[in-house]
Simulated scan of single mutants.
Amino acid sequence: MDFSLFLKGIALGFTVAAPVGPIGILCIRRTLSDGRLSGLFSGLGAATADALYGSVAGFGLTAVSGFLNGQSLWLQIAGGCFLCYLGGKTLFSKPSDRPPRSTGSGKLSASYASIFFLTVTNPMTILSFVGVFTGLGLVGGQGGALSAGLLVAGVFGGSALWWLLLSVSVGMLREKMNRKVLGLINWLSGLVIISFGAGALFPLLIEKWNGLF
């Protein structure tokens, strides 16, 4: 049993999660508005999606991989539209002067599910994991189910570790922010998230437009 694969998975999961894109911005904003748990559960949604796609690559689920790649257009449309919706909701949300209290299980579940959906609808995620697993000789279960399982578990652990560190760090900053600063953060975050959603949809519109003329 090669536990070095688990450590490699942790490093991979942490590296994939760390770049600040629309998911990171949403998790930061939710930590500020709803508390550390909301930000953490949002991040765990992304970690679960990363582990899911890692499983598809590692265990050779070619039928699933082929289906997802075949539906990449609709996944991109769904993800882009959902990002625009979340961006608009963030843009017009009103911050509170008081630090967030404990969040109910229903809201935590919604935070988890929304980020899981956004991550799953990015078809590039599975391609990146296939590339990494191929480089390690584990694509399609070539290195054995146990080896692939260790790497996938590490991916989830590394990604979850990043979101834990991010939510705790941002939560500490929340106590030093007033309503005006939080309002500005909501406004900027909303615009950035909308721009990511528009960036996913705009090339599709251009391609459709060129196909008509």
Rank of each mutant, 00 (worst) to 15 (best):
M1E: 10
S4F: 13
S4E: 15
L5C: 09
F6R: 05
F6L: 14
L7T: 15
I10G: 04
I10Q: 00
G13W: 00
V16T: 09
P19C: 07
G21T: 00
I23M: 15
I23D: 01
G24Q: 00
G24W: 01
G24N: 01
I25F: 12
L26A: 06
L26E: 03
L26G: 06
L26V: 09
I28W: 02
R30A: 08
R30M: 07
T31Y: 04
D34V: 05
G39Q: 07
S42P: 02
G43D: 02
L44Q: 06
A46V: 01
A47G: 11
T48H: 07
A49S: 15
A51G: 06
L52C: 11
S55N: 11
F59C: 03
G60M: 11
G60V: 14
L61M: 15
V64L: 01
V64N: 01
V64P: 00
V64T: 00
S65Y: 14
G66V: 08
L68C: 00
G70W: 02
S72G: 04
W74G: 06
A78D: 01
G79Y: 03
C84S: 10
Y85I: 08
G87D: 06
T90A: 08
L91M: 10
L91C: 09
L91A: 06
S93K: 05
R98I: 10
R98P: 03
P100F: 09
R101D: 15
R101S: 12
R101A: 15
R101M: 15
S102F: 11
S105H: 02
K107R: 12
L108H: 09
L108G: 02
A113Q: 02
F116S: 02
L118P: 03
L118G: 07
N122E: 06
M124E: 13
M124P: 02
I126A: 06
S128D: 01
F129P: 05
G135K: 06
G135T: 13
L136G: 00
G137R: 06
G137P: 07
L138W: 10
V139S: 05
V139I: 12
G141D: 08
G141M: 12
Q142A: 14
G144S: 09
L146Y: 12
L146V: 14
A148Q: 08
L150A: 00
L150E: 04
L150M: 14
L151T: 09
A153E: 05
F156I: 01
L161W: 03
G171R: 04
M172Y: 12
M172H: 10
L173Q: 07
R174W: 10
M177K: 07
K180V: 12
V181R: 15
L188N: 07
G190E: 00
L191N: 12
L191E: 08
L191S: 14
V192N: 01
F196R: 04
G197P: 06
A198D: 00
A200Q: 05
L201V: 03
L201T: 04
F202L: 15
L204H: 10
L204F: 10
L205G: 12
E207F: 13
K208M: 14
W209A: 15
G211K: 14
F213I: 13
F213S: 13
